[in-house]
Amino acid sequence: MVVFEKPKSLTDIPMHYCPGCTHGIIHRLVAEAIDTLGIEGKTIGIAPVGCSVMAYDYFACDMIEAAHGRAPAIATGVKRSLPENIVFTYQGDGDLASIGLCETVSTAARGENITIIFVNNAIYGMTGGQMAPTSLIGQVTQTSPYGRDPKTAGYPIQICELLATLEAPAYLERVTVNNVKNIRNAKKAIEKAFRYQLEGKGFSLIEVLSSCPTNWGMTPQKALEWIDEKMIPQYPLGVFRDKEA
């Protein structure tokens, strides 16, 4: 009897992520949600530019690779063309909260019936660890070598709080995947976001606090602890909008 297997919605292509990176867990949670809802055949995913740029190879559903930050605009086009399909974007913090902030806010404001999986690890991973819009005050990165100084680099952008000022979004929640309990919560949130889209409720975004041991310069274990110690105080977990609640 099989008690544990790879979700059908993931391909067999080996992932390129660094050891200890939580992208693999988040990919799995998205794939599990698609499997559970039985929507693999009608789901269309949009990959970003950043560490998860090759997500189009990992998800078994139809996929589109976007220009940096533009995934929500592409998702809008896809959903307007195929309103019966399920459309999600998978984006990192540089992609969604910096270069694509305009697309993010505008898509949320229109209440497009799509789902965004927003992976926030407070750093640009793919390019080797530069300061992100979500980097913490004092956080040392390649482009904030003396720590992020709010006098010159401003303050972290809290995406869920920002989008919660808008009328249209149906569901906004921040979760993390740094322990089993949190992974279970994240799984529930991601599944709910896809379900809301199926039910036509409108725009949903799940922000997932994620670790980057490589560019944070930590062991994987320490990186997971850093989420509890440093990230959650800046980015509190919880539901910021739930139109059904």
């Binding site: 269309i44 533009r70 605009a73 592409i74 809008t76 086009g77 896809v78 959903k79 063309s81 305009c102």
Partner: peptide
């Protein structure tokens, strides 16, 4: 059909990219 006044020229062409993909 769809008429959508996009937030920017950049968003508009990417919406076109989305539809063209389909």
């Amino acid at each position: 059909g769809t008429f959508l006044q996009a937030e920017s020229e950049i968003a508009a062409i990417n919406m076109v990219y989305g539809v063209a993909s389909t």
